[in-house]
Amino acid sequence: MNLFRLLGDMTHLLSIVVLLLKIRTVKSCAGISLKTQELYVIVFLTRYLDLFTKYYSVYNTAMKLVFLGTSIGIVWYMRYHKVVKQTYSKDEDTFKHYFLILLSIILALLIHRAFDVIEVLWTFSLYLEAVAILPQLVLLQKSRNIDTLTGDYVFLLGAYRALYILNWVYRFLMENHKFRWIPWISGLVQTALYADFFYYYIKSWKNREKLKLPA
């Protein structure tokens, strides 16, 4: 495992820690899209089916279980916790996320490396992850007040994917990995979706101003 990959995983983990911190200590999920969180549960459930079929390492298995457990936990808090659920920005979380699921299903059925259940579901999870942040980005744009933890959460989530791209470049150049169209293009699309957010996040950080996205 190279440094970029490790940093990417740690950023991903840290983003979840930041979100859980907001939910468990501030008891709020204001500005967090339940739709994006539900899409992540679907992403992890479909991608990590190989937990039952293939063993890579203790690290790999542990991380998969953490991502599955925390994503389900977050959705549970947002839907059912009696204090947290009242802070959910339901009226602003309006993105039609079913459309993203449908699009990813169609794309995975059309474009995949092999036509078997695990492979198609794995491909589906990559396509869905690429666009899963969209409801969250739309919600942020509608929020007049983006708190620091929410901004940091989205930034860390974007940084994770950017670091994964560096990891792929490293593996390609140093570890003889082949060019893989499906994960690479999905990953590039996913990272590109954050470009606008990164720009405003870094700008607000440099000017020590509160983060605000133009409508």
């Binding site: 990959r5 293939k54 390492s57 790999n60 998969k64 794995w122 570890e175 994960p183």
Partner: peptide
């Protein structure tokens, strides 16, 4: 030869 897929990633 070990398979160079990307499924060892998360």
């Amino acid at each position: 030869l070990k398979e160079k897929s990307q499924k060892d990633e998360l």
